[in-house]
Amino acid sequence: MTVVAHSTKPVPRAAEPAPLPQVNPAAVKPRDARELNKLFFDRLQILEEGTHEYQYARNTLIEMNLSLVQFAAKRFRNRSDGQVEDIVQVGTIGLIKAIDRFELSREVEFTSFAIPYIVGEIKRFFRDTTWAVHVPRRLQELRTTLAKTKEQLANELDREATVAELAVRLGISEREVIEGLIASNGYTAGSLETPPTGGEAGKGSHSYAEVIGNPDDGMELFENLHALAPLLRELDERERSIISMRFGEEMTQAQIGDRLGLSQMHISRILSRTLAKLRTGLCTES
């Protein structure tokens, strides 16, 4: 009888990845940041969210790429009007969003991926803080177009253009032109201390601030939930469950993955896709 000898040599375990280098983000030059970005993003994909290593990798990426925020902020220096610090802060929010959504598999430089997020966040800041009252985005954009068209027609006609002439030039209805002109009134606001008559406050007079009601903080939440409800009903059962666990139960992506038997990366992709779907629906509604 032939005896087959079995090797008792242990199977070698997969080598643990080398620890991430300890770097001083402020001292990293842009040309060196490119390679470090790849290293940290590669490790970020396999680290568990919420761990010390994960936070170190994510925070280092943020600090190492703050120069992108400074670069993007320079495009708005003529509009900042003393808001430089605010611009950098909102630009950093855009950078963080880009880091959380970036994947090496996209085969695109992180710089090219991040700049649109940063610039978009800064533009949103100007849009939301410049207008004195809430105006739908469609009318905000129409106001800008109307202003340019009014100036062009004034130069051509040597007078102010009529609503009908503006409508013809823009290829829209006169009603839409009127809506855009009315919306322009929301771009600036007068002081609430001004009396309704427009004169100076005197004995027996009341300012606008004294006669208007207080804002209801719950109204905006109600409006948002009202707009979101039909969009949530259009999601499939798994998407609704993940949204509920992430934002209702405040579970991490790793915890959601454990409950559903899926990887954290899979949960991240589903969550990003679902939020993008909801965001698109809300923007379409507005």
Rank of each mutant, 00 (worst) to 15 (best):
E176H: 05
C283W: 01
L61N: 03
G199V: 08
D100L: 00
R106W: 05
V23I: 07
Q83S: 13
L225C: 14
G120Q: 00
N185K: 15
G186L: 09
L170S: 09
R238T: 13
R175P: 04
P230H: 05
N155H: 14
Q152T: 15
I270W: 01
R75H: 12
E48F: 05
L232T: 09
I270D: 00
D128R: 06
L36F: 06
E210A: 12
P195K: 11
F71M: 11
A209W: 08
E53S: 11
A98C: 02
A27P: 01
G180V: 04
R77W: 06
R101I: 04
S184Q: 15
V163S: 05
K148A: 15
S173E: 09
A209T: 12
E121N: 08
K277H: 13
E103Y: 04
Q253F: 03
L166A: 08
R127V: 04
E285V: 13
A209I: 10
D81G: 09
P30T: 02
L170C: 09
T60C: 00
I182R: 10
E223F: 08
V69G: 00
E193G: 13
E200L: 08
G198E: 05
R269F: 10
Y208T: 11
L146D: 13
L68F: 05
P30I: 03
M1K: 05
F102Q: 00
W131V: 01
M1I: 10
V133H: 02
F113S: 09
E239T: 06
T162D: 11
S205A: 12
T129H: 07
G281L: 04
G213K: 10
G198W: 06
P136Y: 00
T130P: 04
V90M: 01
A57Y: 00
V163W: 02
R246K: 01
K9P: 08
L278C: 05
R246G: 03
L146V: 14
E107W: 14
E85H: 03
A189G: 11
S241H: 07
